[in-house]
Simulated scan of single mutants.
Amino acid sequence: MPLTYTLGPAVTPELRDGLLDLWTDVSNAGGAVGFVPPVTREEIRPVLVQHFASMADGRAKLLVGHDEAGQVAATAFLTFNTHHLMTHWLWLYTVMVHPRHQGKGYGRELLAAAADAARAMDGIEAIRLTCRGGLGLERFYESCGYKEVGRIPGAIRVAPGDDREDVIMLRSPA
C-alpha cells in the first residue's frame, strides 16, 4: 500500500516523536542521513530542531509520508536557497524511508512526491541533493532522474581513517 504524503504538516508532538524515531532507526540501520550508528534520539534532536527553525522561518518545507497505521515512514526536507542568485533551485535534505518499509518502492515514491512539490513552487527549476559515497546511493538517485554533477573527495568523515566522497546530484522537477 502506498504511503500518504503531506507537504508542510503541522508540527505536533506526535510528528516530532515520529521523525525522531524514523531518523534514529534509519541511522542505526546504517542509513547515510547525517549520523553514524549507534545514535540516540537525543543526539538527533538538536538537528531536527534546526530543521524546524528553518521551517518556521519559511526556509524549508517538510515532506512526510505516513504508512497505513499512521506512523511516520518517510521524510525529506525541501530547503530553499537564500542566495539571490540561486533561488531557482532547492536542496533536498534528510531523505529517509524507515527500514521496515525499504524495498517496497517507497523511496521512489518519496522522491516523486518531492519533485511534485518542487514543481508546484514558483520559480523552482531544479532539485539538488548530496549523498555519501561508497554506498551506491548515487545509482538509486540516478534511477529516479537525478544526474551526478560532482564529487568532493574525503568530504565526509564517518570515522578516523574512513573518509567518503560527497556526491552532488541534480534533477529538474519536471
Score class of each variant (00 low, 15 high):
R139W: 01
G34Q: 00
K61G: 09
A126H: 12
L22K: 07
R119T: 10
K61F: 13
Q71C: 14
D21H: 12
I44W: 02
Y93A: 07
C131Q: 03
P38I: 04
D116H: 01
G107V: 09
I44L: 07
R139F: 07
D57C: 09
Q71R: 14
A73D: 08
E68A: 13
P46A: 06
Y106N: 14
W23S: 04
A115S: 11
I124N: 09
V39Q: 02
D25S: 06
A117W: 08
K61M: 15
L62Y: 07
R100K: 13
A53I: 01
V49Q: 14
V64W: 09
Q102V: 06
L78W: 01
V36K: 02
W89K: 13
F140H: 09
R132Q: 15
H98V: 01
A29W: 11
V47Y: 11
T24W: 12
G70D: 05
H83N: 14
F80K: 15
A115D: 11
I44E: 05
W91F: 00
E68R: 05
L111K: 08
G133Y: 07
D67H: 05
V95C: 10
A76F: 07
W91Q: 11
P38R: 07
L135W: 02
R45W: 05
P38L: 01
F140E: 09
V49P: 00
M121F: 00
A117M: 04
G18Q: 06
R119L: 11
E125W: 02
A76E: 06
